[in-house]
Design a protein around this nucleic acid. Sequence first.
DNA 1: TTATAAATTGACAGCGCTGTCATTTTTGAA
DNA 2: TTCAAAAATGACAGCGCTGTCAATTTATAA
Lengths: 339, 339
Amino acid sequence: MKATINDVAKQAGVSIKTVSRVMNNEPSVRQPTREKVMEAVKSLNYKPNLAARNLAGTKAYSIAFIYDNPNAYYVIDMQNGILSACKKQGFELLIHPCNSKSDGILDEITNMVKHSRIAGLVLTPPFSEMPEFVKHILDLEVDVVRIMSGDNAPDNLSPCIMVNDHQASMSITQHLIDLGHKNIGFIAGQSEHMSTVERLRGYKQALKENNIDIDKRLIIDGEYSFESGVQGAKQLMEGELRPTAIFSCNDEIAAGALFASRLMGISIPEQLSITGFENSPFSRQTWPRLTTANQPNPKIAEGAANLLIAKARKQAPDNITTQYTPQLVVRDSTSQAVQ
Amino acid sequence: MKATINDVAKQAGVSIKTVSRVMNNEPSVRQPTREKVMEAVKSLNYKPNLAARNLAGTKAYSIAFIYDNPNAYYVIDMQNGILSACKKQGFELLIHPCNSKSDGILDEITNMVKHSRIAGLVLTPPFSEMPEFVKHILDLEVDVVRIMSGDNAPDNLSPCIMVNDHQASMSITQHLIDLGHKNIGFIAGQSEHMSTVERLRGYKQALKENNIDIDKRLIIDGEYSFESGVQGAKQLMEGELRPTAIFSCNDEIAAGALFASRLMGISIPEQLSITGFENSPFSRQTWPRLTTANQPNPKIAEGAANLLIAKARKQAPDNITTQYTPQLVVRDSTSQAVQ
DNA sequence: TTATAAATTGACAGCGCTGTCATTTTTGAA
DNA sequence: TTCAAAAATGACAGCGCTGTCAATTTATAA
């Protein structure tokens, strides 16, 4: 049968309150006592009952992940990362798929927060990029950690985990420049996404730093989809200024660009280099495999969850804005520019 | 502030026990009383506290979804379906990604089941296809619903939701035959997956029913990946018996086959028809878009969860094996056979 | 109408923990 | 060594609900 705190207390020869203290890492427990208790805990395979904790205590033992993202790979990665942190710390994960554009979204989240005691929310785009939304959530006295694109946190509403798309984008662009490319096309994602803005910024800055003129004809508005990559590549390759490389704002776009190039009889990477972004499974399912930037989503998510858990335990570090820079992954879709 | 059962009882002028009865749909509550209570519930936006329920009662209010599937789209679909049922019924979802091949998998699940009171488990492949695993779970006195491929449940260990890949596969094959195709290639997924077996069976049966010989040279062993589709299509199109159509065991394989065909200068669908399976987002991200079979995963998952919830409430119907047949979706990757 | 069974409702304990506060033990300065 | 202050530990109530069983109301038959 499942062991309770009582069993542990008896076996360790202490009161249940002391066991409780040990389980919650509270101070004011002598080391030998702590060890006695931990021993009993192990031998009985004891795990605190979450329901009882929630009912009796005032602390929260769950964190929520709300998502509205068509990219299943991204969502699963984030979820697995958060889950991994939760499991290690005895927390629970509430997942809540929803529509960020629905009218009732605020009530929906408010209701959820009010009905389940939760320590905090992990917010990814688009939610993390909606300051008003974040403010409302914070009013409910729940912690928030935002994962978003940028060099620095845009405000100090909450701790942020910044994904430095700007820097990563510069690396990719620099990689292309190093290969001798000068006319580099850019197929953008939706411009309302910070990631698009940041990636474009990185592209431009890298060009500037290498004294290459930015030509608007090479920058195509698009969205994060295969189809958009197809269209974008066509437009670029049939335009008056033909690039020798294409920077795609994500892997799906790149896959589309790759596909369109094939259709146009352009061989990759010999005649045209193409890069992706995100290192999603997509980038390995193309041929040739995509040069891209790896974004360690599970790690990022785990970090976000750990931060929330630390805050719940009031042991959050002071310096709470962290940053990840996606790293360049060179595969087979890029090569020396044709002379 | 959040309303408790006490508030509702007071407002409705009954005892908390009566409110409890109403909330649990128990009999022995007079209709007017029930209405009074429901009114108070609504006006106070009352929702029973899960923690308290778990602690006080013997019934379970959560169901678990364990998964080990590289296909993020599939997992998200299933998860969303289960979640939707849970939300409607006031249940909680525990998700548990894990490795079905790990040694400790049984202990891992056992531990999870013992430490959280759960009503039941939703099992998808590969778990649903591991009878020994299912037996062990059932020994823990948790309900199980399996989602798997086949016409009929393989045993009566648990309720099953059967996905009739066999029938769907026949529809696809028949579609190709109706278009005049006689030499139809088949690129299989891993043969240890029931879905592969069933899809191959449907393919063969459709051929037989149309008096078309089954030629082993047209059946390629593969796995559920883009790369496998590339290889398979190459092998088929460069083989001695060249098909005019290719049945791919899933959309990823089809995408690979599509890609390989382009490389070989074969135009789709004019020179070669290609079909997918599953109607995943992949099938819309190819060009031309894939003819495939739509598998309503969220619906299936919601059905599975509802069954588990009904069982938890001891109101499960007698006839508990249900069946879904994926429906043919004709898009642009198939056309009349070349004469 | 009355007695009896059946249906409905309520009182109360207790699920496994945490928070509060009282008690005991230890520490350290005088 | 002694005593006050600090540290460590424990006793106990109660979180919001459900299960048990008793009390009350209603329905039914005589």
